[in-house]
Design a protein around this nucleic acid. Structure first.
Lengths: 340, 340
DNA sequence: CACTGGCACTCACAGGTGACGAGTGCCAGG
DNA sequence: CCTGGCACTCGTCACCTGTGAGTGCCAGTG
């Protein structure tokens, strides 16, 4: 199944031309635009072979060829040469993310940056709760019988939740709760938190028990039942850029992007912060995204990713540039979060 | 400038037909679909008059008429009869907003609800900081020299911000800060906060002064320089519903909607929680939104609005239904926030 | 054996034409 | 003041045709 040198060149040339023109590319044009050293007729034979093997297809008999999913896949895996980041892009990344003041800000800037760099739809996931550790757990007494729990993770993420208490709670008890909860949970991984939390009521003085029991339930809800991994979306206007011909092609995509579930699953499979993941066309799980490609990667300080980020665009996207941009941004965001 | 009875009927009929069909409506079709009791020829005369007066226009000579901005405006102000909420819609509102656990949740559900009810793009603003009062101000020591300020308002909004301290700060000092800040700010309106905050450094014991000064700066930044009124957006997929013919008509709209500034200004002028505001076509401030209409209203418990919410759609939207839906949702959200 | 030039063939697309019909304005008559 | 009738405009659609890009195949050549 190995292809000879020239056929590879032909495949690469076709994909590059198609990406920049969005029109089926024919043998003659190919011969003119690239120095392949052979005549159109020869190229035609190669094209026919490539089509036979499933890398190309024809929209109709007398048109040029366009790449199939398999063709793009081969291109991405073996043919594409990574384009280094241009100085302008490097500068843009720094400028964009420079002045960020907190996590929300970082992620919102990131999504705009990605959208702008790649001219595509950008998605950024909040640092996963389960992969973070507890930095602080604050208990605030809003009214005597209503407490607010504020969870702060090492990644800077802040989650809050109101808890209605069965009885009134004194300020002293709140202080005690705060101390107890922090003693138990601080620096623990949130993935381990559910176990710790459910043991909590049994291990506190009896007088605290009712309050702690109620709080435990709320905490568990926040941590487990609602693992709501948040996602920021941006650059949807870029969808209109590619698919100007098919307004009914962008509708399902927009609809899918409004579903949190879809977005999460989109980035959910991302684990490594080092290797970009490219899902092309019908390699995507979701029906509605079969006409798009997703380029994603994890970001984080160490080996394990805190969360994922990526972009979504037409299958005929500029993979080399996109991959470069996505991984550069992820690296920078990782540093930023580690340093803050 | 008063129009006679029948001309009004004709105008209403044209607008209603155009809204449901999205095609220029002609005299004959009009006479058939409505019981106006006159012949097409008569209607033609009325139409010519209405066009003369600026309520209608013709896309081209031999086509039917379509309403102008002025026509829609007249329709909304004088002709439209409010449609009561259907039981199904009422039920939908309750079901959607029932299980909301916190402010974020309420607002995200609201935006989805609005989008679904009206089949349009929905926008919901977070409760304005400046119109809220401080419920609690928490100071959390993340590391010895890094504090996090968490501001909780009566509307349930939570804003946090990290502050880098010049020196290390002891846990005792933090407790003192917490007490001082809360004593000064609790139950005060956030609009008044800047004054209070800037006086703060002068009115604390000298030993607290450096820390308080730094904190003041951060607080002021959070409150004033970054009055970042947050906005939630949803239902953008609905844009494709109306403008299927013009993909290049939805691009600028999508782009505009990605600008926070635009969204804020869109709802920024909303003040009353009782009266719906309708901005039609070129009545909109923003160039890109000249082809759309915005229906918005304030929500809140009392007289003053906490924030705004609304929908954006094509000028040929179903105004009566939309107005009903928007104001019903706003009323319900207001109750919800007051009760929580 | 691999490449090439030539040739016949296919087919999307653009441009032109004409029939059709929806819609209009105007006018004379009730 | 309303109506029916009539001539006119003009966008839409179906149809046709020429053009050209692109193909596959084949015989010829180094």
């Amino acid at each position: 199944m190995t292809l000879e040198e020239r056929k590879l060149e032909v495949l690469r040339a076709i994909i590059e031309d198609f990406i920049s023109s969005n029109e089926p590319v024919g043998s003659k044009a190919l011969a003119e635009r690239h120095q392949l050293g052979v005549s159109p007729a020869t190229i035609r034979n190669d094209m026919a072979a490539l089509e036979e093997e499933g890398y190309l297809t024809q929209p109709h008999t007398s048109a040029g060829r366009i790449p199939t999913t398999k063709g793009y896949r081969f291109f991405v895996d073996r043919l594409a040469q990574l384009r280094p980041l241009s100085p302008a892009e490097r500068r843009a990344i720094h400028m964009f993310l420079e002045g960020a003041v907190d996590l929300d800000d970082v992620l919102h800037r990131t999504v705009r940056l990605l959208a702008q760099l790649t001219h595509q739809v950008a998605v950024v996931q909040y640092p996963s709760l389960s992969r973070s550790t507890v930095c602080h757990l604050e208990v605030v007494r809003l009214t005597p019988s209503r407490l607010m729990l504020v969870l702060i993770t090492d990644a800077g993420r802040v989650e809050q939740r109101v808890a209605e208490m069965p009885d009134e709670v004194s300020e002293d008890v709140v202080a005690e709760l705060r101390a107890t909860l922090n003693a138990r949970l601080r620096d623990r991984r949130l993935a381990d938190a559910p176990d710790i939390v459910s043991d909590l009521p049994d291990s506190v003085p009896a007088r605290l028990r009712p309050v702690v029991t109620t709080l435990s339930v709320v905490l568990l809800e926040t941590l487990v039942e609602r693992p709501e991994e948040r996602v920021v979306l941006g650059g949807t206007a870029n969808l209109t850029r590619s698919a100007l011909d098919f307004p009914n092609t962008i509708r399902p995509v927009l609809e899918a992007l409004e579903e949190q579930v879809v977005l999460l699953r989109l980035l959910g499979e991302v684990h490594s912060p080092t290797k970009v993941l490219v899902r092309i066309g019908d390699e995507n799980t979701f029906e509605a995204l079969r006409s798009t490609s997703v380029v994603s990667i994890g970001y984080g300080s160490g080996e394990t990713a805190l969360g994922g980020l990526g972009v979504l665009g037409p299958t005929r996207m500029d993979y080399p540039s996109t991959i470069t941009a996505v991984s550069a941004v992820a690296r920078y965001v990782g540093q930023l979060l580690a340093g803050s």
